[in-house]
Design a protein around this nucleic acid. Structure first.
Length: 504
RNA sequence: GGCCGGUUCGUCUAUCGGCUAGGACAGCCCCCUUUCACGGGGCAAAGACGGGUUCGAUUCCCGUACCGGCUACCA
């Protein structure tokens, strides 16, 4: 590669960032960093009617959380500023005018209402080479009429004049050669009546101006690729065009079709990376982060949705992904999103990462549940239970009994086999526990076993009742580990409490 | 409808003409565990269909079917 690799992610700030979007960012980032290149974020806010307050900040917060920091962006600055298309508005008109002068585009004066009416009247109406001769534009109007309209500041757009019957082809990094016949493509608007460019013009101009070498985007863009190819040819030369890669789509888990926010709501899993509240409707959508995902797990899961390293390895850190990423192993077909597998990746990272990486998050999760956990004790507890958690939020349920007495005791689990002999045993156990000098896992286990033997009871009959007394239910790590962390006083208190419930 | 893309176990995927089609998630069974998980072992489960090309096709070509994307002065 002769030129420095430069890629861009070009979101429009219209709402929360969806997994498909983050995956596009990820592949951009991995590709750029693999080749020591730059990762640029450019905000495509050319549609002022769809602007949503806060969406841009949200995008950057999401990227930070994922560990995918841009090298250049409106937030990070850079030599090609500004990075917001609304602030680059002045750039575009000249290119559109140049296209008109050279005969590759034309002015169109039809109003949106007129075109809407056409669409109602004619099914599948398109503004294209067969219909443009009957519409109000600089191809049908005389030069004088056009000049007059322009001089009178008549609202108008600039449309590309699609050539007749030529093959437009390009080589996609993922799909190989893709070709289109220009006769099938309509005369897309390049410059809107408000003077803003459409995506089609803006993406070409800015990719050129920002010296983008490789352009990744979702597969839904494939049909408009020929428009972009032609613009490159007319404006900057095909030899300067970035290499395109159209990424496969992320599909809904059931049925078919693109994954949407609605699917998550319907099926009960997140679709956005982080919580997003729509400022207009106040509708809140929860994200992977708040669902208890670690950025490592989230990124790992996303990377494996459409890529593999050619081996059977599935767990990768970001650093490893950067090292190993290659376009040859990007899958062509769309992938159905599988939340169970997503959680598995996260569970693997919970087990793999040092507790210090996520201790603070668990702490605040507990706090939200009314538990103020001491740091040292929390770390001890997390070590004990992390193997049984796949989401950070699981820690609350799995650890709350370490910090406060269980709210409910599953007495039904011990009552059927409960008798006076066991009652006496536990009373005796309390006395023995009170006398113990060293309060630890093994000592406690030995104590219980010895006492059981002396009373001709099987330890197995006593372990479950003890667990229920301390935990409240049939779950959690080794019961003596729990007792050790709980300490003498609390352990005895909980045994006494349940004993009371049982003798009622 | 038109154009473009896609098609290997239920799901994510490996295979770059030699396959007893491998792995992972989910499922089922067993072991470990005096709870629940984790972990270990095992079982079950796939090349859409039809034609070519070839000694040999999951792999290459063509057609069909099915699925998806696009078809805005939205990105």
């Amino acid at each position: 590669m002769s030129k420095k690799v430069r890629v861009r992610f070009a979101p429009s700030p219209t709402g929360g960032l969806h997994v498909g979007g983050v995956r596009t960012v990820l592949f951009n980032y991995l590709f750029a960093k693999h080749f020591g290149g730059d990762f640029i974020v450019r905000i495509e806010d050319t549609d002022q009617t769809r602007f949503v307050e806060g969406a841009e900040d949200y995008i950057f917060e999401t990227l930070s959380w994922c560990g995918l920091e841009p090298d250049e962006s409106p937030k990070h600055g850079g030599p090609f500023a500004p990075y917001r298309q609304s602030e680059r508005k002045e750039n575009y008109r000249a290119y559109a005018e140049k296209l008109v002068q050279e005969g590759y585009a034309y002015y169109a004066f039809d109003t949106a209402e007129e075109l809407d009416a056409k669409r109602k009247e004619i099914p599948n109406f398109q503004y294209n080479q067969s219909t443009r001769t009957q519409l109000k534009n600089s191809l049908t109007l005389s030069d004088d009429e056009v000049k007059e309209l322009l001089a009178a500041n008549t609202k108008h757009v600039i449309r590309i004049k699609m050539p007749e019957n030529i093959e437009v082809k390009f080589t996609d990094m993922i799909r190989g050669e893709v070709s289109f016949n220009s006769s099938q493509i309509d005369d897309k608007v390049l410059l809107k009546a408000d003077g803003m460019p459409t995506y089609h013009l803006a993406v070409v101009v800015d990719d050129y101006l920002m010296q983008i070498t490789h352009a990744f985007r979702g597969e839904e863009w494939l049909p408009s690729a020929p428009v972009h190819i032609l613009l490159w040819q007319y404006l900057f030369g095909l030899e300067n065009m970035p290499q395109w890669a159209h990424l496969p789509l992320i599909l809904k888990p059931d049925g078919n079709g693109k994954l949407s926010k609605r699917d998550g709501d319907r099926l009960g899993f997140p679709v956005f990376a982080m919580d997003w509240t729509d400022p207009k409707t106040n509708e809140k959508t929860t994200g992977f982060k708040e669902h208890g995902f670690l950025p490592e797990g989230f990124v790992n899961m996303l990377a494996m949705l459409g890529w593999n390293d050619g081996t059977e390895q599935e767990i990768f850190s970001l650093k490893e992904l950067v090292e190993k990423f290659s376009m040859e192993h990007v899958h062509k077909a769309g992938a159905k999103f599988n939340y169970e597998k997503a959680k598995w990746y996260n569970g693997e990272w919970i087990k793999k990462l040092p507790v210090s990486n996520y201790k603070l998050q668990v702490k605040s999760l507990l706090k939200a549940d009314g538990i103020d956990a001491d740091n040292n004790k929390l770390e001890e507890v997390i070590e004990l239970i992390k193997d049984r958690c796949t989401l950070l939020t699981d820690f609350v349920q799995q650890s709350s009994f370490f910090f406060k007495s269980p709210e409910t005791i599953d007495i039904a689990a011990i009552q059927p086999k409960w008798n006076e002999q066991k009652n006496l045993f536990f009373l005796e156990l309390i006395r023995e526990f009170e006398l113990m000098q060293s309060w630890n896992n093994e000592a406690l286990e030995n104590e219980l076993k010895e006492l059981a033997a002396a009373n001709q009871l099987k330890p197995g009959e006593l372990m479950l009742p003890l667990r229920i007394m301390l935990v409240g239910g049939k779950f959690g790590p080794h019961v003596f580990n729990i007792a050790e962390v709980l300490g003498k006083e609390e352990t005895i208190k909980r045994i006494k409490h349940t004993l009371q419930l049982l003798t009622k």
